[in-house]
Design a binder for these strands. Structure first.
Lengths: 191, 191
DNA sequence: AAACTCGGCTAAGTGACTTAGCTTTAAGGC
DNA sequence: GCCTTAAAGCTAAGTCACTTAGCCGAGTTT
């Protein structure tokens, strides 16, 4: 039997592609093995199992998302940076519907790349909020608020929770605009 | 063999209890059958299968959540109503960690009770927003924003995405306060 | 060329869901 | 009070996904 020449990276990358096609919850080792042209148990030479694959996929997707968020915000500030980053966030979820859910997995402390990717993602948000003068506790609260809003919107949208998809773009822009207003007069700032 | 005397309602109610104990994703027909004192295939006399059970559980949980949201907001208005409803929302998710994820399933058009429950939940939000003078397109956008924020926060919190759980309560109150500010000067209102 | 590593394989076991088909309970008609 | 019958329970068996064990040959190293 000729060797296919897999390694962990090729396996995880193909898993990401497959997840985007069939959905994260439909990602199965059998389908992945089939796609890679090997028998299913052969995958265990490269990943420790289904859960470990999901974790590695999370690390990959989180790193990609963090990069796109950072890139979008660079060279901008305030509402401009916020809009760019928020649109990058939702754009990633749209382009990678299978990878996005993976990013919600809490980083594995045993995987430095995963931890670093998570820190970069949060760091991108914190950097944007610093442009609003938010630091310390306020930055923590505001970061959580922004993450909640973005993640919640994208998740509900993906789940089909918004009825007709017609005006979803506009609703998202309004959400961003409302967050912009909130951050300018953040509750804890003046009081 | 004496009959246990199950029906669909008892099965779904027990599934809800079990889900709260072991988690929605760990809810299994085998465990449920064991809990009810019957063999696994016997459950098929009452529910059509695992997916149908999840849908019925979604209908139950959505109805409960809608009731709690409505009850919390009744007799209040503006920021008062918003705070009460938001706290009821998160409170339900805390008290019923297994049922809450079920509420994210889009209502099954073939299940009138499920559809009605979903409408009541959205109706509760819309009613609160009417207290801010938000109607029409603005109400649609604001409803989506509020649902996104609440759902996103609760989901990230449940997933352990907020690091130390110490100040999560305060962050939630700040989120609500920021939504209150947003709704008072909703982006689309004045412009 | 021999040896060794390692990436592939087959075989086999577990747990979850599902279907098919049988049995027996319990209710209702006669 | 018996007989019929719908339905609630059961066992048996099949599918699918994940996992482990252990074999074998390809490719590299010496």
């Amino acid at each position: 039997m000729p060797r296919v020449g897999l390694n962990q990276q090729t396996v995880v990358r193909e898993a990401a592609r497959l997840a985007d096609e069939v959905g994260f919850s439909q990602l199965t080792l059998a389908a992945l093995a089939n796609r890679l042209g090997v028998a299913l148990p052969s995958l265990y030479k490269h990943v420790r199992g289904a859960d470990a694959l999901a974790q590695k996929l999370a690390a990959l997707a989180t790193a990609e998302l963090a990069t796109e968020m950072t890139t979008a915000a660079v060279g901008r500030s305030g509402g401009d940076a916020l809009r760019a980053m928020a649109n990058a966030y939702r754009g990633y979820a749209h382009r990678h519907p299978g990878r996005y859910p993976a990013t919600q997995r809490v980083p594995d402390p045993a995987d430095p790349e995963h931890v670093e990717a998570g820190e970069r993602a949060v760091g991108a948000v914190v950097a944007v909020l610093r442009g609003y003068g938010l630091t310390g506790d306020d930055a923590v609260d505001a970061t959580r608020a922004l993450r909640s809003a973005l993640h919640g919107f994208v998740t509900l949208e993906a789940a089909g929770g918004f009825g007709l998809p017609r005006d979803v773009d506009r609703s998202y822009q309004q959400l961003i605009a409302s967050m912009d207003i909130s951050f300018r007069s953040w509750p804890g700032t003046g009081a």
